[in-house]
C-alpha cells in the first residue's frame, strides 16, 4: 500500500514540467525515506535525479519499496488537471498496475480521482560517486535561465569558465560571439538574489545549450540554482526543493578529441 499526500500539490506539477521533456519514461522509486527518480535522456547525455523526502509529505505511507514505471508525458497530462492550490495524493495498491492521483481543492469542495496505467520500464540505475568539485556557483535561477536562453539565440554550446574574476558563460555562432560574466555578489537585499562562487581551481567546460535550456524548466521550483563543475566530470545543475529535496541534472561535457 502506497499513499503520499502532498499539501503543496503544485510542487509535483512543477517537477513534471521540469523533467517531462528530458525523459519520456521513468521509474519512480518509493521507499520509507522518500519518493525518488533517476533517469537518463534517450541519448544518454544527461541524467536527472529527483528526491522528495518523506517528511515533506503531510501523510506518507509506503509499506514496502516499490518502483512505478510511468510515462512522464501521460503523468503530466494528469497532473495538469490539478489546480495549483490543490492537495495531491498518490495512491497505489500492492501489485497493482495502476496509480491513482487524487486532487482535492483547498476548501474540499472538489475531489477528483485520476487513475493512470503503470508500465514496465527497463532502466539502468547509475551510481553517482561523491565528488570534490573544482568550482560551485550559486546564483538566482531566473538569471541562469535568462543567460541560457540569450546565449542559445547566438550559438549551440556554452563554455562555462570559473576563475577568480567570476563565472563566464560564452558562446559563438554564425552571427558572432557572446560572453556574459557574473561576479560574486553577496551585497543583496535577499539571500536568494546573491551570486556566490566557491572556487578551488579554475575550471572551463563546454556543454550543449539545448540541455541547459531544458534544465532551466525547473526554475519555478527554486529561487536559486547551484552549478557544480569539475574538469572531466558531468556538471551538476541543482534546484533545491524547499523542505523536501531536490532536482539535480547531470550533463556530460563536450570533449576535445
Amino acid at each position: 500500500m502506497l499513499e503520499l499526500r502532498l499539501v503543496q500539490g503544485s510542487l509535483l506539477k512543477k517537477v513534471l514540467e521540469a523533467i517531462k521533456d528530458l525523459v519520456n519514461d521513468a521509474n519512480f522509486d518509493c521507499s520509507a525515506t522518500g519518493f525518488s527518480l533517476q533517469a537518463m535522456d534517450s541519448s544518454h547525455v544527461a541524467l536527472v535525479a529527483l528526491l522528495l523526502r518523506n517528511e515533506g509529505f503531510e501523510h506518507y505511507r509506503c509499506d514496502r519499496n516499490i518502483s512505478m514505471g510511468m510515462n512522464l508525458g501521460n503523468m503530466n497530462k494528469m497532473l495538469k488537471c490539478a489546480g495549483n492550490d490543490d492537495i495531491i495524493t498518490l495512491k497505489a495498491d500492492d501489485g497493482s498496475d495502476t496509480v491513482t492521483f487524487m486532487f482535492e481543492s483547498p476548501n474540499q469542495d472538489k475531489i477528483a480521482d485520476f487513475e493512470m496505467k503503470l508500465m514496465d520500464i527497463d532502466s539502468e540505475h547509475l551510481g553517482i560517486p561523491e565528488a570534490e568539485y573544482h568550482a560551485i556557483v550559486r546564483m538566482p535561477s531566473a538569471e541562469f535561465a535568462r543567460i541560457c536562453k540569450d546565449l542559445s539565440s547566438i550559438g549551440d554550446t556554452v563554455v562555462i569558465s570559473v576563475t577568480k574574476e567570476g563565472v563566464k558563460f560564452s558562446t559563438k555562432g554564425d552571427i558572432g560571439t557572446a560572453n556574459i560574466v557574473c561576479r560574486q555578489n553577496t551585497t543583496v537585499d535577499k539571500p536568494e538574489e546573491a551570486t556566490v562562487i566557491e572556487m578551488k581551481e579554475p575550471v572551463s567546460l563546454t556543454f550543449a545549450l539545448r540541455y541547459m535550456n531544458s534544465f532551466a524548466k525547473a526554475t519555478p521550483l527554486s529561487h536559486t540554482v547551484t552549478i557544480s563543475l569539475s574538469s572531466e566530470l558531468p556538471v551538476v545543475v541543482e534546484y533545491k526543493i524547499e523542505d523536501m529535496g531536490y532536482v539535480r541534472f547531470y550533463l556530460a561535457p563536450k570533449i576535445e578529441e
Binding site: 547525455v45 541524467l47 553517482i128 570533449i255
Partner: peptide, 14 residues
C-alpha cells in the same frame, strides 16, 4: 574536433 560526452562513461551501472 569536439565530441559530446556520454553520461555512462562517467557514472557506472549499479
Amino acid at each position: 574536433d569536439v565530441k559530446q560526452g556520454n553520461i555512462m562513461s562517467f557514472f557506472k551501472k549499479v
